[in-house]
């Protein structure tokens, strides 16, 4: 059985991007920029090529792990539902790691590199997944015995769900929905570089993971998110967007003077440096907190 939700949803993606552009053009609620959008779409196209070319690596890896599975889960609706929820949990763990470990960030930064937040941003996908081998986060599901086809199906549905939350056009959803599900409001926070919003809301589909693991930050109506990355890219070149952080790692490794520095440059949070002279999200948040408390000492 071959059922690719992402491929099936592509016409809907195109329709919704056109609808959002028209809405923004006439309402002013949001922003589009030609070169930014072109970069996002080319990144999306390239990630399809990269996935097709290197997807076999995950398949090979899965076939290495599967003989050690605890059981074999048969196809059924409840099994797919359970797989979907557990897959979303592994997505949360991968996503949190992708923001806290530079090696995984080198791939994921691509998705955050736009200063815009619209449906085309959802399509700005990395090309370097085969380099970072982020798929190892799926290992527990393979060991539990979920079939590879089921993992591909639920992963595809998860990706399709995340498309519509990349928009400024939708304010807030009904309260019950905001409480359980990832929404445009929650995900705007995730894409924001405002100090108060950094490293928050890693959820894919269910925002409950962030609430359970202490990474949830609600969108503050008084502080509009500013999108992008802490050090925004000055280029729209898709190759530079795709690989700049890998090149940054290589340059840092070339200057490393000890094993500690090598490990730090690869596995410490993005922005880590041996002498602490660069900014990490933790140091930015700390300075912001100090600045705020100095501004309002009575609080």
């Amino acid at each position: 059985m071959h059922f690719d939700p992402t491929q099936l949803a592509t016409p809907a993606f195109i329709f919704l991007v056109i609808a959002e552009m028209l809405f923004i053009r006439f309402s002013g609620r949001g922003r589009y920029e030609v070169r930014d959008m072109a970069t996002s779409l080319v990144m999306g196209f390239g990630s399809v090529i990269s996935g097709a070319a290197f997807g076999f690596i995950f398949v090979r890896f899965a076939h290495l792990v599967m003989p050690y599975r605890l059981m074999t889960v048969a196809w059924s609706i409840p099994a797919v539902a359970i797989c979907f929820v557990l897959d979303d949990l592994t997505y949360y763990v991968w996503h949190r790691s992708a923001h806290r470990i530079r090696w995984f960030w080198a791939e994921h930064v691509t998705h955050h590199s736009s200063q815009h937040y619209n449906l085309s941003t959802a399509l700005r996908q990395p090309w370097g997944g085969f380099l970072t081998i982020g798929f190892i986060f799926k290992t527990p599901l393979l060991l539990l015995g979920f079939p590879l086809g089921m993992l591909a199906l639920v992963g595809g549905i998860n990706l399709v769900y995340q498309f519509w939350i990349h928009t400024e056009v939708i304010g807030k959803m009904p309260r019950w929905f905001e409480a359980i599900m990832n929404t445009p409001s929650h995900h705007r926070v995730h894409h924001a570089t405002n100090a108060r919003y950094l490293d928050a809301n890693y959820a894919g589909v269910f925002i409950v993971w962030d609430k359970m693991f202490g990474s949830f930050v609600p969108e503050d109506e008084n502080e509009k998110p500013r999108y992008g990355i802490v050090k925004n890219l000055a280029t729209f070149n898709p190759f530079k967007v795709a690989f700049h952080e890998f090149i940054g790692i290589a340059k840092d490794l070339a200057s490393a003077r000890s094993l500690r520095e090598v490990v730090g440059y690869i596995f410490a949070p993005p922005g880590w440096s041996p002498d602490g002279s660069r900014e990490t999200s933790d140091s930015i948040k700390q300075r912001w907190a100090q600045f705020r408390s100095a501004q309002s000492p009575a609080e």
Binding site: M21, V34, A38, L41, V42, F45, V48
Partner: peptide, 26 residues
């Protein structure tokens, strides 16, 4: 698959064109 990729590229070009038409090059 080749047709799919060609159609995707045409789709990208059409969307970028529409974006330029609607928003100009600010």
């Amino acid at each position: 698959q080749i047709y799919y990729l060609i159609a995707s590229l045409a789709g990208v070009a059409a969307l970028v064109g529409l974006c330029a038409l609607l928003f100009g090059r600010e």
